[in-house]
């Protein structure tokens, strides 16, 4: 049985929406980061799925996904570093309490 492309896209879209919901609704900054990871991985699924279904001879899609993974790792490292810095200075990781940018 061949799984049609659309299934992957639906899974990716669902994952993206879950991640987006997490980003918008979590109060904990680490939760937001985890949501972003989910969204990135949804993109990865799309990339790999499109690659597999359109032009599987060229590994561009996989390479692109690896790039995204790398960027995601860097993002997690920087993000966690920021959160730790915020936690040290303000004793909280709840984003609602971190409103220094407020007018």
């Amino acid at each position: 049985m061949t799984i049609p492309l659309s299934w992957y896209l639906i899974v990716a879209a669902a994952l993206f929406c879950i991640g987006l919901y997490g980003v918008l609704s979590r109060r904990n900054a680490i939760g937001i980061l985890m949501g972003i990871e989910l969204m990135l991985n949804a993109v990865n699924i799309n990339l790999v799925a499109f690659w597999r279904y359109t032009n599987p001879q060229v590994i561009i899609g996989q390479v692109f996904a690896i790039f995204v993974l790398t960027v995601a790792a860097a993002e997690a490292a920087v993000g966690l570093a920021l959160i730790i810095a915020i936690y040290r200075s303000r004793d909280t990781v709840v984003v609602e309490d971190v409103d220094l940018m407020k007018w």
Partner: peptide, 17 residues
């Protein structure tokens, strides 16, 4: 206009969305 500068990152994200 400054009413929308809430300082909460998720509001900004919502606007972007």
């Amino acid at each position: 206009l400054r009413q929308i500068q809430t300082g909460r990152v998720q509001n900004y994200l919502l606007v972007a969305l």
